[in-house]
Design a protein around this nucleic acid. Structure first.
Lengths: 235, 235
DNA sequence: GAGCATTTGTCCGTATGTATT
DNA sequence: CAATACATACGGACAAATGCT
């Protein structure tokens, strides 16, 4: 064997994909088989490779489609929320409120929000969508001092950032930690993963610009095949 | 089909792996086949899954081994270089100087280092190793004002941070950008990837603490299966 | 160095399941 | 319901790397 067949097929397809618009449907496995004169398993190995590189999205019963990630830069100075970033990239962005309740804050959250241990705060669980595809799962904690029944505004406005702004705050990112980990299976399933896969995790604390008051503490899991995250530590 | 066979096998093996020490050799594919009563392709699918989760490392002709990633936290306040982080995690860390020369700086580097366009600077290309495994590829630019023939010290000390320190500087991370991308094929090959795979890329600028003088500008590619990066944006 | 057994890597063909259209 | 397309699983063959004799 001179070269790996499946890689050769993958390389040719990858080059073609670069010239195609996002969402374009590729040929079926059977067509690619005949085109390159290889077996179906080889074609599938090639497509798996492209999938691992986030170049294609595959849907059973439907086909294989060109995938494009959305760039999302996190830094202290950049204001836009992920929601706004998606929208300005020309994709459909919305969130779905899964849970909203009052409950005792876990210890690390209490520390960050500056709340006494075992006190209660508002907790929101939301799913983010990009073009009707689940892209993220987030849990957000907001102290009662800041505002209550924040979920009411959320059902209309979608972006927490905007809701807070509407209530007279100027939220800025005070602390943030980003990594790539495998989420708990419960969350992985919500994200549409058919198995544990490396996923972006962003923990962050938002403060009010004027008085440095803690506004919100959140943990967000985001699919790396849909979002290309960049974290910038500025001078 | 009630459940995905390969996932079931993967789940059982993953649980066992958590109890095993790093580097431990797993059973061969044939043994696992017999144990679960499944075909080899199913076993291989399961092991591929574990590999995608960075849980195992597979070596042709040798076996499948338990893999552990090294945690590396990047933030402004944390001083340790990756080299020191690896060493303090109990692994063998060293670098290999691949190239060292003087050449005109590319424009973005000149901007960051505060050098006039088309001026010359020292350029180092190094490969990092963790336990004799290639873990990273980096290109570093150091202006001639700071010091010359830095490669001489490097052959002995390994860590650029330490070399600069030995010359009276106190290097601090001034600017940094981290992302996950597929490296150019030339670099991917150096990293031992058999194909394009998502890889950490860290661009950074180091300054001297006392006078804020730019010391070094670097671009580093790091294998995510060996290093679990976390970037922290501090308050 | 040569030879051999072991182990993983690649590829093929086939059959069947499952989701979409 | 039928056709299409991707998903999973089986078994077999050979290639390539490793480790040991």
């Amino acid at each position: 064997m001179v070269a790996k067949l499946s890689r050769e097929v993958a390389a040719v397809l990858a080059a073609e994909i670069r010239e195609l618009p996002a969402g374009h449907r590729l040929d079926g496995e059977h067509t690619i088989m005949k085109r390159f004169g290889v077996s179906r398993s080889t074609v599938r190995a090639a497509l798996k490779e492209l999938h691992d590189q986030y170049l294609v999205r595959r849907v059973q019963g439907s086909g294989t489609f060109v995938n494009r990630r959305i760039d999302y830069v996190i830094s202290r100075s950049r204001r836009p929320s992920l929601h706004e970033t998606i929208a300005s990239a020309g994709a459909k962005a919305y969130t779905h409120l899964v849970e909203a309740d009052l409950r005792p804050v876990p210890e690390p959250v209490a520390d960050r929000l500056g709340l006494p241990a075992r006190s209660e705060a508002q907790r929101l669980v939301r799913l983010s969508y990009i073009d009707d595809e689940v892209s993220g799962y987030s849990e957000e904690w907001i102290s009662l001092d800041v505002c209550d029944h924040i979920e009411v505004g959320l059902r209309v406005i979608e972006s927490l950032d905007q809701v807070l702004r509407g209530r007279g705050f100027d939220p800025v990112r005070a602390w943030c930690r980003i990594g790539l980990d495998t989420p708990p299976t419960a969350i992985g399933e919500r994200l549409g993963h058919d198995g544990p896969r490396p996923t972006w995790i962003v923990e962050s604390l938002t403060r009010n610009r004027a008085d440095s008051r803690p506004l919100m503490c959140s943990t967000a899991w985001t699919r790396p095949d849909l979002v290309r995250m960049v974290l910038e530590l500025e001078e």
